[in-house]
Amino acid sequence: MSNGTKPVDALRFPAILYHREHTWLQADGDAARVGISDYAQDELGDIIFFELPAVGQRFAAGQSFGSVESVKVVSTLYMPVGGEVLAVNDALADTPELANRDPYGDGWIIAVKPDGPGRGGLLTSREYREYLKTLK
């Protein structure tokens, strides 16, 4: 992805975990929510479609679980952890721009049941911010 408009320091980095392919993971009891980062939505621009998995599908960490399409680009979505899809954010079907407006809130993409407690390879918000500076 490229062509984002915001400098890294203008992006939001809530204290959750991030995958280097710009998805995030937020624990919620035994489950966790997954979405795309503020950086990702900024790079994508106007999001117009999500291709999402079905509830019950299982994915390994780092595996593609769908795609996001903006006017500019089609981008693969990568699982931050391995696990089973528990829920899909149906609101994205009619209002995909939720992921632009509120990527860490109403724009969440799927809820998963992680395979285990391991979060190896994921980045903290500080680490992710520093990582992004190497990309810009």
């Binding site: 106007d46 479609f49 995909p96 721009e97």
Partner: peptide, 9 residues
Amino acid sequence: KEAFQRFYA
């Protein structure tokens, strides 16, 4: 925007 999203989908 919304009309385009529906058409695109």
